[in-house]
Amino acid sequence: MSLVHFQILSAALFSIGLYGVLARRSAVLILLSIELMLNAVNINLIAFSAYTESLASTGQVIAIFVITVAAAEVGLALAIIINLFRSKGSVDIDKIDVMRW
């Protein structure tokens, strides 16, 4: 088992997440797809740090920061979604096409 296995898995997860972001219309589902993409990135970071002697801690530390930012992002995004639902009665991002209302 070498680095390339993990890279392919990460690429697969990232592509799935990208498809979700591009093709779905519900804001919540887009958020879930973004989580998938972030996790694909984390797999890559940790795989590189595990297979590269000199990077032993760097990858893991950056992965911790990615998880932190992901948690912050989910909190903010969900607050926005709730607000959106209150004012528009829908979480369909195709309907959110005006800058103010």
């Binding site: 392919i8 990232f14 592509s15 799935i16 990208l18 093709a23 779905r24 219309r25 519900s26 369909d92």
Partner: peptide, 25 residues
């Protein structure tokens, strides 16, 4: 409320990205 009209394009883009990344890896 499931998918929008970009679906085929999104499919192509993600498959393409996957192939590129796999080949590079």
């Amino acid at each position: 409320l499931v998918d929008n009209s970009q679906k085929p394009l999104a499919f192509l883009i993600s498959i393409g990205l996957f192939v590129v990344m796999t080949v590079a890896a």
